[in-house]
Amino acid sequence: PPPPPPAAPKITIPALVDKSGATSDVGVDYAWGAENAAKWINEKEGGIPGIGKFDFVSTDYAYRIPEAIATYERYKATYNPPVIIGWGTGDTEALSPSIAKDQIVYISASYSSHLNDPAKTPYNFYPVCSYSDQMRAAIIWMKDYWTKELKKTVPPKICFAYDFGVPYCRAPIPAGKALAAELGFEIGPDQNCSQRGADFSSQVLAMKTFGANFVWMGNTTATAAVLAKDMKKHGLEALLMINQWGHDENLVKLAGEAAEGVHGMSGHYYWGFEAECPALVNPLRESVKLYGPKDYFPISSYIRGWINVRCAVLAIADAWAKFKEVSGPKVKEAMESWKDKVIEGTIVPPVTFTGADHRPNTKAIVLKIEGGKYKKASDWIEIERKAAWLGW
């Protein structure tokens, strides 16, 4: 008789989250999204297709790299997981040699381009356009806005404001500057804005002296709000463009009137675009109703937590369907066969990975705060998938 089919494995998906550290302003609701996705998939969908229910565990490592390394080692020893859901740029980059050696697929909330060249980081993945490609889209959009919308003929002036000491904030700066220089921007002095900062007056005045027309802000939401308020207070009338993790619904609450007209880059749709994305209603809004948070509605970082867990579940399901084995190498192989893979409806553009290129897609969108609500300031901007731009 033929051998019995292999029994479905018991799967644990562990996650690292920041609920109390330097990025907890966006980390708390990301953690809600990840946790709720796991609950929803288990309770409403019967778990991982072909396998069934899985366990989900998470640890608040408070954005401390040594804590991340210790948590990773504990996860590896305890669960032997095929996939881990990660968080920050500093810790994900620090862990990438271990991840590669241990052959564990690592799906991070860091969209750093340093993680998308499999020749260097073969087991790192994420399902959202990289920070560098988002910034390239921003620079292209700014140039078009300057020449076509504002009909200006002089070179636009840009400054980059970010925390010099935080890898996430720094990650896309060289890529953005290189393209800005190529497109004829005049680049002013970088401004060091701490992730713990409460007053950026001196930085704003320096940018005002330079005559900045555009400001890139590379921090998370709490300090992006400080910059927006100080720009308004000191009359710096530059267009403020913020990185993916630095703008969300809390920016409107924190910056008040100063949030009006602020622009932000994204690799996915935010809350408020339910007409474009029915999946934002069901399952995502439904999951908040069911599982919480109960005392407030989460910001759009919730969506990023959700799509990382969904991405992990799809990858494990594909590995099991193709190979009847769920291991890091098989999950990696399954993901590297994805061609225009739909992650969660139209929330994020379809994802394609190969063994030579882990850029999920190169599509970003410019969002704008108008009347306290998010509006589209562009359609999806697709960046050329240049070989030279892989990994930076």
Score class of each variant (00 low, 15 high):
Pro1Ile: 09
Pro4Lys: 07
Ala8His: 10
Ser24Tyr: 01
Asp25Pro: 10
Asn36Gly: 10
Trp40Gln: 09
Glu43His: 08
Glu45Tyr: 05
Ile48Trp: 14
Gly50Cys: 04
Gly52Asn: 03
Val57Ile: 15
Ser58Cys: 15
Tyr61Lys: 09
Tyr75Ile: 14
Tyr79Glu: 02
Ile85Ser: 07
Glu93Phe: 07
Ala94Gly: 05
Leu95Lys: 03
Pro97Phe: 05
Ser112Thr: 13
Ser113Lys: 02
Leu115Ile: 09
Asp117Leu: 10
Pro118Ile: 03
Phe125Ser: 09
Ser132Asn: 11
Asp133Tyr: 14
Asp133Ala: 12
Gln134Glu: 14
Met135Gly: 12
Ala138Ser: 14
Lys143Asp: 14
Asp144Phe: 04
Lys151Tyr: 07
Phe160Asp: 07
Phe164Pro: 15
Tyr168Ala: 15
Arg170Ala: 13
Ile173Thr: 15
Ala181His: 11
Leu183Ala: 04
Phe185Trp: 11
Pro189Cys: 04
Arg196Ser: 12
Arg196Tyr: 12
Phe200Arg: 09
Gln203Thr: 04
Leu205Arg: 15
Thr209Pro: 10
Gly211Tyr: 04
Trp216Asp: 11
Trp216Pro: 08
Gly218Ala: 11
Thr223Gln: 10
Ala228His: 00
Met231Phe: 00
Trp245Ser: 08
Gly246Gln: 01
Gly246Ala: 06
His247Val: 09
Asp248Gln: 00
Glu257Arg: 06
Ala258Tyr: 06
His263Lys: 04
Tyr270Trp: 07
Ala279Thr: 06
Val288Pro: 02
Tyr291Ser: 00
Lys294Phe: 10
Pro298Tyr: 12
Ile307Leu: 14
Asn308Val: 10
Arg310Thr: 15
Ala312Thr: 03
Lys322Gly: 14
Glu325Asn: 14
Glu325Asp: 15
Val326Asn: 08
Ser327Gln: 01
Val331Gly: 05
Trp338Val: 04
Val342Asn: 04
Gly345Arg: 05
Pro349Ser: 02
Val351Gly: 06
Phe353Met: 09
Thr354Cys: 05
His358Val: 11
Asn361Pro: 02
Val366Leu: 11
Ala377Gln: 02
Asp379Trp: 01
Ala388Trp: 09
Gly391Asn: 06
